[in-house]
Computed example of a mutant assay.
Amino acid sequence: MDKNEIRRSLQVQRERLSKSEVESMSREIVFSVQSLAEWKKAREVLLYWPIKNEVDVTPLFHDALESGKKIFLPCCRKDEPGIMDFGVVRAEEDLLHGSFGIKEPCRSKCEFPDVVSPDIMIIPGVGFDRRGYRIGFGGGYYDRFLARPQKSILLAVGVCYSFQIIDEITVEAWDKPVQSICTDKDIIWPE
């Protein structure tokens, strides 16, 4: 199967999950992320706001708020497909429904620094392979961000349900792997 066929198949499986399955599996994934030394010592974290039965990482958002971490969330640029800016979010009230129905940082309430180099990034995906490569929704947003010249990011962590781990994804020149993947069953460390 090509990437589009894999994407469609995995999206259908994810859409069929019940609310309780999403909650249960997401809870295990959040525990896995919280068990990482890099999460515990991170001062700056990049998260996302879940949609369409994605892994619910909102407990990580609240954990980061409570522990005083600086939180970045993506905000899609209007009229520039594939480009995201990252706003510093200090409360859930700083978020508005933006592109694709996703909660995003409000541009008038949040700071949007030119350089964003979090200690840890939590990245969603429609699917991942064991090498750390991902299939997203197809817009290339995270690949573009990962390809930017930046200060070092301590760890880029993909999060997904165990059924979203596939044997191998065909890789394009612009694809960038994550260094770790947390699922509801295990933590994968690609070589």
Score class of each variant (00 low, 15 high):
121 M>W: 03
73 L>S: 15
87 G>K: 02
81 P>R: 08
129 D>Q: 07
56 D>E: 08
144 R>C: 01
135 I>S: 05
75 C>Q: 12
161 Y>N: 12
157 V>R: 01
124 P>Y: 08
41 K>D: 08
73 L>T: 15
42 A>S: 08
190 P>G: 11
83 I>V: 14
24 S>A: 13
78 K>A: 05
87 G>I: 03
156 A>I: 02
12 V>E: 09
132 G>V: 01
149 P>V: 01
171 V>R: 11
107 R>F: 11
133 Y>S: 04
164 Q>L: 13
82 G>N: 13
147 A>E: 12
113 P>F: 09
61 F>A: 02
29 I>T: 03
29 I>E: 02
83 I>W: 11
8 R>M: 02
188 I>N: 03
67 S>V: 03
145 F>C: 03
107 R>P: 13
74 P>T: 01
75 C>L: 12
183 T>M: 12
33 V>W: 04
108 S>T: 15
136 G>R: 01
165 I>N: 02
147 A>F: 06
163 F>K: 06
191 E>H: 10
36 L>N: 09
106 C>I: 07
133 Y>T: 07
136 G>N: 00
35 S>R: 02
16 R>S: 14
155 L>W: 07
66 E>M: 12
125 G>Q: 10
190 P>Q: 14
42 A>H: 01
50 P>N: 10
55 V>T: 12
1 M>W: 04
48 Y>G: 07
166 I>Q: 05
2 D>S: 00
187 I>L: 13
95 L>G: 10
67 S>F: 02
51 I>C: 03
144 R>Q: 03
57 V>H: 13
84 M>G: 06
24 S>D: 04
170 T>I: 15
164 Q>M: 09
182 C>G: 06
143 D>S: 12
128 F>K: 06
68 G>M: 15
167 D>M: 02
170 T>L: 14
185 K>G: 00
61 F>L: 14
107 R>N: 08
